[in-house]
Simulated assay, not measured.
Amino acid sequence: MDSSLHKHYHDDEFDPKGLVDTYFCDENFPLIDEGVEFPLKKLHETFLSGRVRGDTLIDISTGPTVYHLLSASDFFKEIIVLEFTEPNILEFEKWLRKDPGAADWSYAAKALCDLEGNREEWQVKEDKVRRAVKQVVKWDVSKDNPLEPVVLPQVDCVISFWCLHVISRDKEAYRSNLRKFASLLNIGGHLLLFGAFNMTYYMIGEHKFFFLSCDEKFLREVLRDAGFVVENMDVLPSKMGCDLVDCEHLVYIIARKEREV
């Protein structure tokens, strides 16, 4: 199928609950170890090392996802969540309020607590995230200033899961969006970036959505051009256990912002 015919995350009909239920909350999902356990482990190791720290963290990721904030809430006093669509905001806020029908993130919370050696504390972990989230703000991809009219101070850390691939229609758009993400960070702050190599789509129900394909050379180049130094890059070959995605490798990057551009 021509990738130009794929639906787009922020422009077309998109089911945020369907995304999280399929890829992140179902322990029977064939790639749950890649999509949830690998990121949990890497973030746990990163924060525990002490190399990434500060007071405030911004999350700007695909869908109303929570699992990557479970570790962050132990190391940052405040979390600001940026979402791309109103349905995403509503779905995330349902989880914050513990509304009936909200996404069930217990699998991820228990997995992280297993890493930390205390599985019984998973509900405490979730509630800590709820207390840490101070704002949920819309990031409008169509605007030159995506946060307008909201003004946020630069922060110490930005986490971004998958979204640069799904909101960027081509590599120039990826460059532009990455620079906007970089503007959220203090000099010396860190971008914790999850993405994939050579992936072109992901499925939600019967709908196939666009995912911008790129390789390691491109990611290193655009990060450098956006003012970052790559401190660490971990690449995990995908087992390709299902036809919901066509990912070859997952990638986790720790990048430090060294200059404004």
Rank of each mutant, 00 (worst) to 15 (best):
Met1Leu: 14
His6Met: 05
Lys7Cys: 11
Lys7His: 13
Lys7Phe: 12
His8Gly: 00
Tyr9Leu: 11
Glu13Arg: 15
Asp15Ile: 03
Lys17Ile: 12
Lys17His: 14
Gly18Cys: 00
Tyr23Cys: 03
Tyr23Thr: 01
Tyr23Ile: 04
Phe24Asp: 03
Cys25Phe: 07
Asp26Arg: 10
Glu27Gly: 02
Asn28Trp: 04
Phe29Leu: 07
Pro30Ile: 01
Leu31His: 05
Leu31Ile: 04
Ile32Leu: 03
Gly35His: 04
Gly35Trp: 06
Val36Asp: 08
Glu37Arg: 14
Glu37Tyr: 00
Pro39Trp: 04
Lys41Asn: 11
Leu43Lys: 00
Thr46Arg: 13
Leu48Phe: 02
Leu48Met: 14
Arg51Pro: 08
Val52Arg: 13
Val52Leu: 10
Arg53Tyr: 10
Gly54Asn: 14
Thr56Gln: 02
Thr56Pro: 06
Leu57Ala: 05
Ile58Cys: 09
Asp59Gln: 13
Thr62Ile: 15
Thr62Val: 14
Thr65Cys: 10
His68Cys: 09
Ser71Pro: 13
Phe76Arg: 13
Ile79Phe: 10
Ile79Gly: 02
Val81Gln: 07
Thr85Leu: 05
Thr85Ser: 14
Thr85Asn: 07
Pro87Arg: 09
Asn88Lys: 04
Phe92Ser: 03
Lys94Arg: 15
Lys94His: 09
Trp105Leu: 05
Ser106Lys: 08
Tyr107Pro: 02
Lys110Thr: 12
Lys110Gln: 14
Ala111Gln: 12
Cys113Ile: 01
Cys113Met: 14
Cys113Trp: 01
Asp114Lys: 15
Asp114Ser: 14
Leu115Gln: 08
Glu116Arg: 15
Gly117Arg: 05
Glu121Asn: 08
Glu121Pro: 02
Trp122Lys: 07
Gln123Tyr: 04
Val124Lys: 15
Arg130His: 02
Ala132Phe: 03
Ala132Gly: 06
Lys134Asn: 00
Lys134Met: 03
Lys138Val: 09
Trp139Pro: 06
Asn145His: 12
Asn145Ala: 13
Leu147His: 09
Val151Trp: 04
Cys157Gly: 00
Val158Trp: 05
Ile159Asp: 05
Ile159Lys: 01
Trp162Cys: 09
His165Val: 06
Val166His: 04
Val166Phe: 03
Arg169Glu: 15
Arg169Gly: 09
Ile187Gln: 01
Ile187Cys: 00
Gly189Trp: 06
His190Asp: 15
Phe197Val: 11
Asn198Phe: 11
Met199Glu: 14
Met199Ser: 13
Thr200Asp: 07
Tyr201Thr: 05
Met203Tyr: 03
Ile204Met: 03
Ile204Tyr: 02
His207Tyr: 08
His207Trp: 07
Phe210Pro: 00
Phe211Lys: 08
Lys217Ala: 14
Lys217Asp: 12
Phe218Gln: 12
Phe218Thr: 11
Glu231Trp: 01
Asn232Gln: 11
Asn232Pro: 05
Asp234His: 05
Asp246Gly: 00
Glu248Ala: 03
Ile253Trp: 08
Arg256Leu: 10
Lys257His: 01
Lys257Thr: 11
Glu258Ile: 13
